[in-house]
Amino acid sequence: MRLDYVIRRVFLFVVITWLAATLNFFLPRISGQDPVREKLLQQAMSGGYVHTGMEEMVASYEQKFGLDQPLWSQYITYLGQMARLDFGYSIANYPRTVWAILGESVPWTVGLLLTSTVLAFAIGTVLGALLAWPRANKIVHVLFPPLLTLSAIPYFLLGLVLIYIFAFQLNWLPLFGGYTAGSFPEFSWSHAIDILRHSLLPALSILLSSLGFWALGMRGMMVTVQGEDYMTYAEAMGMKNRTLFFHYAIRNALLPQTTQLGLALSTILSGAILVEVIFSYPGIGTVLYQAIRQFDYFLLQGIIFTIVVGVTLATLILDLIYPILDPRISYGRQ
């Protein structure tokens, strides 16, 4: 792998991170909304307190959050805080820091996404390979139209349908949440099974609607690979169908498929956020939904920054792995 490629990729990562922080800082400020004042007003309205002392409260909070400084100095402070991953306090749940809330929710999202995406990638790839394989069982061809239809449906809509069928009508699986409310999180079999039961439907809705995407890509690649000379040669050598399929065709078609993974990452994540909202799954998507509903700007910014950096970092890692996986990928200057 060439050094200048690595440097360029890392530089791009830094640029995107900076851009995310900057957008995060300036976009809410363009609107001229004042998060602290709004939040306090909202609380005052719902709690029915008297409005006297409101201005002093706003002033003291603004000082606390540094909102009384000039814009450029706020920006510099903000960038510094972002670099140290210090997202400040949540306005809606004041004494708690954004970081603590994120720490609780991120593992749920990562767990859900990792499992469902890896499964979708593996199953979809094999299905796609079988679809293009002339000697495969014809049954897979029956699967193709429904898979394609599913891939056009947003994850969360499929999720709604699944909840209604499996959780509400058949009562097989829980309706919402990440674990049974009131149960104590502990390391035990019953709790693990509880978590698994809760994650089954959200994972299934992501899995089912992303299968078609992977199958379609793999199918195209397999068609190309089958036209290659080495396939004809291997076939002429009298190799077993199995060996041909796994060792010659799939192995070579798989590499471009992995590059798709990096490109699809942000789409999958956007979809998963909505799935979490639909299922009230305790991940980052649900927290984002709460933050939007409560006008919790600091939490919102923290989540958006974390997700953008997370996705960019994952893409960076994938991009650095590809040239090792596939030496044919050349990232020379254009």
Binding site: I273, I304, V308
Partner: peptide, 9 residues
């Protein structure tokens, strides 16, 4: 950058 997040912002 995940587009949905920027749109949310």
């Amino acid at each position: 950058i995940p587009a949905l997040l920027v749109l949310i912002l």
